[in-house]
Design a protein around this nucleic acid. Sequence first.
DNA 1: GATGAATGAGATTTCATTCAT
DNA 2: CATGAATGAAATCTCATTCAT
Lengths: 190, 190, 190, 190
Amino acid sequence: MDKRQRIIDATIQLCLENGIEKTTISHIVKHAGIAQGTFYLYFPTKLAVMPAIAEQMVTIIHEKLSQIDRSESITMKMQKCIDTIFANTSAYQELTKLVYSGLTQTEEVKQWEKIYQPLYDWIFEVIEEAKLTGGINSELDSGIVARIIMGSIESTAEQIYLFDYAPTIQVEHVKNNLHTFIMNGLGKNI
Amino acid sequence: MDKRQRIIDATIQLCLENGIEKTTISHIVKHAGIAQGTFYLYFPTKLAVMPAIAEQMVTIIHEKLSQIDRSESITMKMQKCIDTIFANTSAYQELTKLVYSGLTQTEEVKQWEKIYQPLYDWIFEVIEEAKLTGGINSELDSGIVARIIMGSIESTAEQIYLFDYAPTIQVEHVKNNLHTFIMNGLGKNI
Amino acid sequence: MDKRQRIIDATIQLCLENGIEKTTISHIVKHAGIAQGTFYLYFPTKLAVMPAIAEQMVTIIHEKLSQIDRSESITMKMQKCIDTIFANTSAYQELTKLVYSGLTQTEEVKQWEKIYQPLYDWIFEVIEEAKLTGGINSELDSGIVARIIMGSIESTAEQIYLFDYAPTIQVEHVKNNLHTFIMNGLGKNI
Amino acid sequence: MDKRQRIIDATIQLCLENGIEKTTISHIVKHAGIAQGTFYLYFPTKLAVMPAIAEQMVTIIHEKLSQIDRSESITMKMQKCIDTIFANTSAYQELTKLVYSGLTQTEEVKQWEKIYQPLYDWIFEVIEEAKLTGGINSELDSGIVARIIMGSIESTAEQIYLFDYAPTIQVEHVKNNLHTFIMNGLGKNI
DNA sequence: GATGAATGAGATTTCATTCAT
DNA sequence: CATGAATGAAATCTCATTCAT
């Protein structure tokens, strides 16, 4: 019904199937079941749809993170955060690729920061809280470290699921290393 | 002389100037000073040039890392590694974007792992050596952590230079946080 | 007005002037006064226009045959049929060639039968009527003989006009032989 | 070994597989295992290979016709001629198509007459002999009728094998009609 | 004779964009 | 708001032909 949403859905599906380059507005409108001209009533270009897709994906992750019990330890929270990102990257491998290359291809790149904000905020809160409750003993800038952590989790997940590093069987081993590294990094247990 | 190299060079330069989308094969051949058809003798499509570019970029970084004195401490080496990646990402912002979206758009994705191998190996050696000389006291898997570290450095650099996070003035502050986080992560000073 | 018809007309005219090989889609659209992309809204390839042309040509011949008075003798009708096919092959030499090689080059070959049907039907009717009125005394299968006759007329006309057999001056002599042969073949005058 | 023959063979095979239009000199030389430039030492263009192919095909038919016993009756000879052409068209359906459209596409068309000469001559001799021995009582011009007959046999065979007329099961029925028609046409048995 | 990398004119094809309905 | 036929600039891609080796 909602034409805007139908455009987004069609774009996701087509890009997943054929890649961004080969997905054209003509294909999108055909797949969305709308007229050629209608596209332009909602988006100026094909790449302008990407932020909407990214937003949708970030929202999914954020919802999962929000369900984590606030009273849990930072160790546990970070564990679950890693699990969530890994699960998401695994499930939406191609979509992740899509969002990445979609965003990097345009001036929309700058929006990345804003779209990711909720995730950074979530980690930020976790760190700040841990600082207060003595969960960690860190001198680090929470805002910056939040980004570093999110980046390291994502890039590790990508290396595994997108770039084919390591047999899938070792995923747990990698996740454990990553978790230890991050907790160490935050100065936990010192 | 070498036509293949001239195609790669032209592709890099044009993509840096105008972005991937707007760089066409027609532009490339014109800039490379070769005939239209000659392009197809070396690459089947525009995107097929990307792995060659990625390789070249990794080579540049690797050469810089190789120049670091082997006798330096791991702390110093990691510092210089961060500096190198940041400098590179800053200098070749667009090329970085290019490599990223170029690689993710094709089946070549899987090559990424292989192309990056030299960089992972360099960090791996640094960690292993530090373990031996007592520079760090880590139980972590060096192969995995090498990838985590490289990922965290790159993603942080990208957030700064590509996604416009943080005013440039704070770059040193971010780098310090990143360095501390990594060294902590490795279990240094425990 | 009708873009499809304009494409067909332009294709015919250009192929008559320059041959099929040298007629390009670019030429066709220019001559038809439409945009390059418009061609592809109606036909996927140049050769896909051929069946439409064949149909048009058969229609022309069929109209001429239809004008022949039904009350004439089979001898007269066959004479006029020969004259019509010869005149047509002579006038549209290149178009005939075009239709032939156009149709044989694609999967459309099978359509030939269907397109030619009206001509076969016309001869079929003539033979059947002659059988009834005693014009001929033939045991032959009218459907099959209709095709044999049409084939012999066309191939003879082609030998003369396309393959340059016999000086033009002898055309009447050839036509007479052909007519006698066909009438004999049908068992006339026995 | 013989490069000329290898070009011809490659051209036949490739045209049978992909059609004339889509067969390029590049494909031919690759398939023939010779260098790009070598082609031009033997043929000026792709279509210039066609007469060589036609010649090859006509030679095959002519050899079969030559094996027919000279002492047989014209009725028998014509029967065997029909059988030979039908068998050939059936076996080399695609090659026939190829030769046809290949020849009609160029100025080489005029060579058709010359290439076919041996076949016309064979029928010519048969008719002339029959005239002498009283096998037929025809006033027709043997040279012209030879062409008419050959044309009618070929076009009928094509209708059956190329254009899909009539179920294969009726082939004998068609051949019988054709034979009767031709013998009648020649004035036999009057 | 034979080679095959290189050429580049020109063909096909695509597709974002418009605009009258 | 919505449509979709038409556009045409510009892209990709082909391929006959050449020529230095």
